[in-house]
C-alpha cells in the first residue's frame, strides 16, 4: 500500500464514522486504520461524535411485543465467550470480533436455513461452539494457490451440477452483510460445497472474495471467487459441521482472513 493511497484514506475518516462507506471500502479503511495510529485516534473521536448524533434523535416507544420477544429470546440465546487472545494488530482483532459477531448471528434470525433442512435440525447446536470454532484465526493450513481457484467455468458448472444432483443436497439462501443474496450449497455425501450469487458487488482490482471452511478452530482457505464470477466451488473436502465463510481479501487471497466475514453459514 503506497503512502499516496494512505494519504487518500485520510479523507475517509468522516465517511467511515458516519457509515457512508460501502462494506468493501469499510474493510479497506479498517486495514488502513491498522497501519495508522493517528487515524485510529481520529476514528475513535469521530465514532463518539457520530454516536452523539445518534443520541439526539427523537426517542420512539417500542411495542411491548419487542421487549417480550427479546426477553424470551435471550433466555435461550448463548452469549459469546469472553476469551480474547492477544491480537497481533487491531485489524486482526476487529476481524476476529467480527467473525464472532457474525457467527453469533447464526443463532439469530439473520441467516436462516430453509425450514426442515438438515441445517435447520442442527440449529440447536450452541452458538458458543460455532463462535469458538470461528473465533480462532489460525495461520492457514496450506495456502490456497492460484491453481484450482480459476477453474474454467465448465468445470465449475460440472461440479455445481453434481452438487445439485446430490441426494443429500442442502441449499440455504443466505444474505451477506451488505444484503447481497448468496446461495450456499453443500453435500456431505460428496464432501463438497459451493456458493452462487448473481449480485456480488464488484471489487477493486486488488481485492477478491475468498472462501473459507472453519473447522475445529481453524480457518481453512477454500478458494477465491473473482470479480464477475457468479459461483465458486469450494476447494478441499467439506467435513461435517464445517462453517462456510466469505471474506474480502487482497488479490491472490490470504492464508488467514484479514477482514471481517461478509457471510458465515453453518453446514
Amino acid at each position: 500500500m503506497s503512502a499516496r493511497e494512505d494519504e487518500d484514506y485520510g479523507s475517509w475518516a468522516g465517511a467511515y464514522a458516519l457509515d457512508a462507506l460501502t462494506p468493501d471500502e469499510r474493510n479497506r479503511y479498517e486495514q488502513y486504520l491498522s497501519r495508522s495510529e493517528d487515524a485510529r485516534a481520529e476514528a475513535a473521536e469521530f465514532g463518539d461524535t457520530a454516536a452523539l448524533l445518534g443520541s439526539a434523535t427523537e426517542p420512539v416507544a417500542p411495542s411491548p411485543e419487542l421487549r417480550a420477544n427479546l426477553l424470551a429470546a435471550i433466555a435461550s440465546t448463548p452469549q459469546l465467550p469472553a476469551e480474547d487472545p492477544a491480537p497481533s494488530d487491531e485489524t486482526a482483532q476487529r476481524a476476529r470480533e467480527d467473525v464472532l459477531a457474525g457467527a453469533s448471528t447464526l443463532g439469530g434470525n439473520v441467516i436462516q436455513p430453509a425450514a426442515g433442512s438438515k441445517a435447520a435440525r442442527r440449529w440447536s447446536r450452541p452458538v458458543a461452539m460455532l463462535a469458538a470454532a470461528a473465533a480462532v484465526v489460525v495461520l492457514g493450513v496450506g495456502v490456497a494457490g492460484g491453481t484450482g481457484l480459476l477453474n474454467p467455468q465448465s468445470e465449475q458448472q460440472q461440479a455445481i451440477s453434481a452438487l445439485e444432483d446430490a441426494d443429500d443436497l442442502q441449499r440455504v439462501e443466505a444474505t451477506a452483510t451488505d444484503g447481497t443474496p448468496v446461495s450456499v450449497l453443500w453435500s456431505e455425501e460428496l464432501a463438497s460445497a459451493a456458493i452462487t450469487s448473481d449480485d456480488m458487488p464488484e471489487l477493486a482490482d486488488d481485492l477478491v472474495y475468498q472462501l473459507w471452511m472453519i473447522r475445529d478452530g481453524e480457518t481453512i482457505p477454500a478458494g477465491l471467487m473473482e470479480d464477475g464470477e457468479t459461483s465458486a466451488v469450494m476447494d478441499g473436502e467439506l467435513h461435517q459441521g464445517d462453517v462456510i465463510g466469505i471474506t474480502v481479501e487482497p488479490a491472490g487471497g490470504s492464508e488467514a482472513p484479514t477482514t471481517a466475514p461478509i457471510l458465515l453459514q453453518a453446514t
Binding site: A73, I74, Q79, L80, D84, E97, L100, A101, G107, N109
Partner: peptide, 13 residues
C-alpha cells in the same frame, strides 16, 4: 430486535 440480541450476545466483548 437484531441489535439488542447482538448486544446480549456480544456484551462480553
Amino acid at each position: 430486535q437484531e441489535v439488542f440480541l447482538e448486544i446480549w450476545q456480544t456484551a462480553t466483548r
